[in-house]
Design a protein around this nucleic acid. Structure first.
Lengths: 150, 150
DNA sequence: TTGTGTGCAAAAGCTTTGCATGTTG
DNA sequence: CAACATGCAAAGCTTTTGCACACAA
C-alpha cells in the first residue's frame, strides 16, 4: 500500500498553498528524503542523507520542515527511550504501535484493533477529542539474535 | 491505597543491600522527595524541593538516584511531548495511562483493562516477555479552562 | 581502610534561535 | 519588491561525565 511519492508531494503542495507558505526546493528535498526511509529516522539521518547532494540543506531547515510535515500529518513523531526524536512517514503506512526490546533495542511494529476502542471509550469518558496516540510495549525478545545491552 | 513512606524506604534498603550498594542520606532524601510528589515530577523539581534543606543534593545525584529507583521499580519514567523526562512514584499507585491535551498540556490519568489484554496478545504473538508499557492518548479537552497554547 | 557515592563544573547531545543573505510569489 | 525561508554559528536545555573529596561499610 505504497503511495507514489508524486502524490505525497502534491498533497504537501496543496497544504502549503492553502497556508500561503512557500514551495522551496529544500522542503521538497526533505519531504522526499523522509519518504525514502522505510522505518524510523531522525533529523540527523535526513541531514546526512541529503548532505553532498545538489540540493543540500541545513540541519535547522530539516527540523523546521519536519515540524511542518508533522502539522500536515505527513510524518509522525516518537519519543522512545533514547535522546532524540524519531520520525516516520505516515502516508501509505497503516497506523501501528511499537514493541521495544529492553535488551537489544529492536523495535517491532504491531496493530491491535482494541486500541481504537480504548481511544473511543476514553475520549467519551474524559471528554476529549482524541487525535492520536502512542502505545509502546517494552519487554524482552526471545530471539537468539538479541544481544543484551550490558 | 497509599503505602507508608517507611515501607517504601524499607523496600529500597532491601534492594540496596542485595546489590551491595550504599545506603546514603542523599539517596533516602531523594526517595522521600519522589514519594512526596502526588503526580509527575522531573529531576529539577526534586533538586529544587530538596535544595536548602539540611540534606541537600546535587542534580547529578538526583539523576543517578532516580535511575536507580527506576531499576527497582519504585518510580516510572515518561517522555511526553516536552523536553525533559518525567517521573512518578509507583508504589501505592495503580497502573494507569495518560490522556494529554494538545492545547493546554493538561495530563489526565485513566485505566482500561483492555490494555492488559493487548499486552498479553502481542507478547505471545511477537514472542516478547512484556515488562511494561506506555499508552498516551493525545487530543483536545473540551473544558472551558482549556487555554489554547497559541 | 577501601572502594563507592557525591558535588561541582565542564562537556555532551539534541534542538532552537538570531541574523544576514537568498529566493519565492 | 516584500515577505518568507535558509544557512551558519551560537545559544539553550536537559542530562552525563570526570575528578577530587567525603563517607558508608
Amino acid at each position: 500500500m505504497q503511495v507514489p511519492i508524486k502524490e505525497v508531494v502534491s498533497i504537501f503542495k496543496r497544504n502549503i498553498e492553502r497556508d500561503k507558505l512557500r514551495n522551496t526546493p529544500s522542503r521538497i528535498t526533505i519531504l522526499k528524503a523522509a519518504y525514502s526511509h522505510k522505518g524510523h529516522f531522525n533529523a540527523e539521518t535526513i541531514y546526512n542523507t541529503v548532505k553532498g547532494d545538489a540540493q543540500s540543506v541545513s540541519l535547522a531547515t530539516v527540523y523546521n520542515t519536519l515540524e511542518l510535515l508533522q502539522k500536515y500529518g505527513l510524518v509522525r513523531t516518537h519519543k522512545f527511550s533514547n535522546q532524540h526524536t524519531e520520525y516516520e512517514a505516515t502516508l501509505g503506512y497503516a497506523q501501528h504501535d511499537h514493541m521495544i526490546c529492553l535488551d537489544c533495542e529492536k523495535v517491532v511494529e504491531f496493530c491491535d484493533p482494541r486500541i481504537q476502542m480504548i481511544r473511543e471509550t476514553m475520549g467519551e469518558l474524559l471528554e476529549f477529542e482524541v487525535e492520536k496516540h502512542a502505545l509502546n510495549l517494552y519487554g524482552h525478545c526471545r530471539k537468539a539474535s538479541c544481544e543484551k545491552a550490558l
